[in-house]
Design a binder for these strands. Structure first.
Lengths: 165, 165
DNA sequence: CGCTTCTTTCAGAAATTTGTGAAGTTAAGG
DNA sequence: CCTTAACTTCACAAATTTCTGAAAGAAGCG
């Protein structure tokens, strides 16, 4: 059993983290509800919660949870699991998966690159503007290659420090 | 002088790029007006435009330009220059500066790290949730170190391919 | 110094985004 | 099969964001 004050303090600590971290994600461009759901999952002991649990902890409707989870799943930031023998679903954040997903931002990079390529073509490679766009494009292509390598190094580093999953 | 169709086609190409690239930036979380202003600067031949020019090209009020530029300057994505002997200001995107600024996203990283550190402390390093947050924190710290190195490599690579500025 | 030109600030209108309740859909379990 | 629990979709209300016009604030120039 926990000491009287424990459970309460813990709930407070969780809530504090959830709102604080979510706020940072929002600032970085994420929608509020997905950010809150994600933060809640990240700070849950099991790393997984049901729709109902999320709704209660965050004080929002099932519809809001549904929308947020759909978004997060699309971004590969959470995965859905069917609880066997129940129509309840649980949403899980794998320790790894989620920042791998963050690296999947190179989907975004790819789209930027395409827009830039179109720009270079439209403006002409030899115009000053065209050259600027081309250089920017080269930068993103460089970053993309480097990111892949970086993730490899991270996995090695991680295994060393935290051991295998 | 340019051939009859030339100027028009060019304006169209510019506009196409501006709106297309801006749309991608918006999708990635940037506000629309800063995104459009930035794209316009990026695809201008001189890499610099006045407030009036921006307003006309984008069909927006001086107030909108002012707000967008303020934001972009805060993010170090453009710099402001006073046109000597005029109270007109020009806003410039340096070929380099701007993606250096993109790397300045490590300000964002720092804030995430702080939120995570608070979370680890609040939840306890030894709880499962605490450990997950700690690992996430370690990831970001790793990324931060790597990003710095990556930018060094980029500068070298860039000089090789494009020559010195 | 005051005039003029450009930029910024601010209050409010318009548009967009966000979350809810309710109805609709799916699938487990009798 | 029918019932029922759970998730999803949809139309709408509320909140937020975004842009504008107008007024105020700088800064060159006579």
């Amino acid at each position: 059993m926990t000491e009287p004050g424990e459970a309460v303090r813990d709930a407070e600590a969780v809530s504090k983290f959830v709102e604080g971290f979510a706020a940072q994600l929002v600032e970085a461009g994420m929608q509020r509800m997905p950010a809150r759901v994600f933060a809640a999952l990240l700070s849950s002991d099991s790393g997984a919660m049901t729709s109902a649990e999320l709704g209660e902890q965050l004080q929002v409707s099932p519809a809001a949870v549904s929308g947020a989870v759909r978004y997060l799943a699309q971004q590969h930031m959470v995965s859905r699991e069917r609880e066997p023998g129940s129509r309840r679903e649980r949403y899980r954040v794998h320790s790894n998966q989620w920042y791998e997903a963050l690296t999947n931002r190179d989907v975004v990079l790819k789209r930027w690159e395409n827009a830039l390529r179109d720009g270079v073509e439209g403006l002409g490679e030899t115009t000053p503007a065209g050259r600027r766009l081309a250089e920017t494009l080269a930068f993103f292509e460089f970053v993309e290659r480097e990111l892949a390598r970086m993730m490899e190094r991270w996995r090695a580093h991680r295994e060393e420090v935290f051991g295998r999953d």
